[in-house]
């Protein structure tokens, strides 16, 4: 692949939730680039902020909670400056989102074709029904849904088919990015595997980028081109999937990968056991947020937050093991950058 084109440029994205216990930053100063047509897997344990990040990219964080970004350019446009009308157009047409449970995302009293048609008509007011229908039929066919199924209501479809309808709703408007938040989690393994194949096919066919959010690391290994690992509101490692799996650099990534069960019998018989549990984000640990659980902790880890640095070509890691500690006077500005 020649040098990939940046679809979304995200710098210092922060989401702050107002809770009874005070402000909690579920996503804390995250910076990365998302490339056109790539499948980026975003993994992490529950509560690490991965779903919040997905919503923040659509700016779907309701007040009084806040989303702020140093910079969020999508296809060259500044999303943070969008007004309501622009946001409405942006969501759906440029980015679309698939959730875990398709039955709660689809309207139970609307047929599949009506769903599709509505999506087209809301975003392309000039398109006539007669022009939209052939488009819908071709798309549905490509997704492996029979034509007759267009007249079905969501409850008449199987779980895998419902999820494909959701994917279709994103594709009908030629979205540049589909955010799939645990989209395969409620499906049975065989159906899940089938959907994974289809997502890859769709990417080839339509060139759409997919941000696959999942707690299932093995699934991301099967699906994604690049992987981003989140821990306690930070991306702590990001890189090419094969490189990260071959040589995980962050101690958390190493532990996480070693604790994933593997069906292969010749693989190790015991899982790696990481001590402790993820922290409560209302009182995150000082310095590196992983330091209380880290086997390679150093004195500096509890004092200063490491930067998210490119430690190898196209592989970013947020860990002091790969960075020089700052000199005393420049410490303050290195913490945040």
């Amino acid at each position: 692949m020649n040098s990939p084109e940046v679809l979304a440029r995200i710098r210092d994205l922060t989401v702050t939730y107002q809770t009874r216990l005070g402000a909690v930053s579920a996503v804390d100063h995250i910076s990365f680039d998302l490339f056109r047509g790539e499948i980026l897997g975003l993994v992490g344990e529950s509560g690490c902020g991965k779903s919040t990040m997905g919503k923040a990219l659509m700016r779907m964080i309701p007040p009084p909670n806040q989303v702020s970004a140093g910079e969020y350019l999508f296809d060259g446009q500044n999303v943070m400056a969008f007004d309501d009308a622009q946001l409405r157009d942006f969501r759906g047409r440029r980015i679309s989102m698939i959730f875990q449970d398709p039955l709660t995302s689809l309207n139970p009293v609307q047929r599949v074709d009506e769903h599709m048609l509505e999506a087209v008509q809301v975003h392309e007011t000039k398109t006539k029904k007669e022009d939209a229908l052939p488009r819908i039929r071709t798309l549905v066919e490509r997704l492996g849904i029979q034509q007759e199924r267009l007249g079905c209501y969501p409850h008449q479809l199987s779980g895998g088919m419902r999820q494909r309808v959701m994917v279709g709703l994103g594709l009908i408007l030629n979205a540049n990015l589909i955010i799939a938040d645990e989209a395969t989690t409620s499906l049975d393994v065989i159906v899940e595997a089938k959907l994974v194949d289809q997502l890859r096919e769709i990417r080839e066919l339509y060139g759409v980028a997919i941000l696959a959010i999942s707690h299932n690391i093995a699934l991301i290994a099967e699906l994604a081109d690049r992987i981003a690992v989140m821990y306690a509101g930070h991306i702590i490692e990001l890189g090419d999937i094969e490189k990260v799996f071959k040589k995980p650099r962050h101690p958390y990534t190493r532990g996480l990968l070693a604790s994933v069960p593997n069906i292969k019998l010749d693989e190790r018989e015991e899982l790696f056991k990481m001590l402790g549990e993820p922290p409560n984000l209302s009182h995150p640990p000082s310095g590196c947020r992983f330091h209380p659980r880290c086997a390679e902790v150093m004195p500096i880890c509890s004092q200063l937050e490491p930067a998210f640095d490119e430690v190898a070509p196209k592989q970013w890691v947020k860990c002091w093991l790969y960075q020089d500690p700052p000199s005393p006077n420049s410490a303050a500005d290195k913490v945040r950058k």
Binding site: I190, I217, A221, F245, K264
Partner: peptide
């Protein structure tokens, strides 16, 4: 066969 293997290779 459907169970994903945690190895992208």
């Amino acid at each position: 066969a459907a169970i994903p293997i945690p190895d992208p290779t």
